[in-house]
């Protein structure tokens, strides 16, 4: 469209020196994703990334579920920033989309209500004796992967293509709500044309599936899944999304938000058990990758070191399409020792 200036939708991402904050849930569900990012940035791209083991959850899930009060979360955020200040970094790199939204929200609030910033400084000083400076930039991990997409491509022999047919893989991209819907200028493509994942997919050789419910919620929604009685609402939303994408026969889903990736993966199992239906031709479901896992596969990392065996929907069919070699015997081995594979679901094929 002629009257859109795409420059308005670009985001500045620093080239180096990041202070990394992790997600509270991702290490359980996608245990290799964060390690993969650090590996890529540090070892493949030679970047300086610092993390401090003393950092904690941002308390975003509690905040969005009305459990954590504003003063608490502001102080929590301030504490993370004080760790960054102490380490001498100014570029905050955030693993989680919820946290990303939280950091931006607090910074925005402090900008508009400077007295809140002073209160927070005061609270942090009284509770911990710490001081903090505001970051120069806040970027999400997917921003960084997007920013370095061409460098990653240059180092990669993998393309998002079916290695047998040469056809580009059909990819469903799903961008977390808090990535750009709260602060559109903080995300590539803004809220309306999010390009952070579609841009990755396209520059790495795949095609993006444009399906009717592309912008439909994954079903995460904080309060909607925390309480068991509400979870039907969450799973129903995911069902709408899967039913809409299934006719396009996507090869995989890539998501940049812990909640989206988790639910788009796990709910396929739940729905299969509830309704007897799966959303792929052979009953295996649609594999779900995070942006880091995808980047890791591009760079030839071992799928089992990336933790892909921890996904609900198994990824072998995708690895075969990509022509990525893997050792089936290594799938359930830890430090050279066999571990017990998980029980098989009754419907979803593994």
């Amino acid at each position: 469209m002629a009257n859109i200036s795409w420059k308005d939708y670009e985001k500045r991402v620093p080239d180096d020196h990041f202070f990394y904050v992790r997600s509270c849930i991702r290490q359980t569900f996608f245990p290799g994703a964060e390690t993969a990012l650090l590996n890529i940035l540090r070892n493949e791209l030679g970047k300086d990334v610092f993390e401090d083991s003393r950092h904690t959850t941002c308390t975003g899930i509690g905040y969005h579920s009305d459990i954590i009060p504003l003063e608490t979360i502001m102080t929590m955020v301030a504490r993370q920033l004080s760790l960054m200040t102490e380490a001498g970094y100014r570029n905050l790199l955030v693993s989680c989309v919820t946290s990303f939204g939280i950091y931006l929200e607090m910074l925005d609030m402090w900008k508009h209500f400077p007295e809140k910033l002073e209160q927070t400084r005061d609270a942090l000083r009284k509770t911990t004796g710490r001081e903090f400076e505001l970051p120069q930039s806040v970027v999400h991990a997917s921003d960084v992967v997007f920013h370095f997409r061409n460098e990653i491509l240059k180092r990669s022999s993998v393309r998002l293509m079916n290695c047998k047919s040469g056809e580009p893989l059909k990819v469903v991209e799903h961008v977390g709500c808090h990535y750009a819907k709260i602060f559109p200028h903080e995300g590539f493509g803004g809220a309306e044309f999010p390009s952070v994942l579609s841009g990755l997919v396209e520059s790495w050789g795949g095609t993006v599936v444009d399906y009717p419910e592309r912008r439909h919620c994954c079903g995460f929604g904080f309060r909607h899944y925390l309480i068991q009685e509400n979870r039907g609402y969450s799973v129903s939303n995911a069902k709408v999304k899967f039913e809409s994408m299934a006719p396009f026969q996507p090869d995989f889903i890539v998501a940049n938000c812990p909640g989206c990736a988790m639910f788009l993966d796990k709910w396929q199992y739940t729905l299969a058990e509830m309704t007897g239906k799966t959303f792929s031709a052979h009953g295996h479901g649609i594999p779900v990758l995070t942006h880091e896992e995808l980047a890791g596969l591009m760079l030839g990392m071992d799928p089992w070191k990336l933790g892909l065996q921890m996904h609900q929907v198994q990824v072998e069919s995708l690895l075969d399409k990509l022509g990525i070699l893997y050792a089936p015997i290594e799938k359930y081995r830890l430090a050279g020792v066999d571990i017990k594979p998980p029980a098989r679901p009754s419907v979803l094929m593994v």
Binding site: E229, R231, S236, K239, V240, T270, E273, M274, S346
Partner: peptide, 12 residues
Amino acid sequence: MINFGYTASESR
């Protein structure tokens, strides 16, 4: 089939 304590609704 497993009873999870919640069900998926049909679309309106």
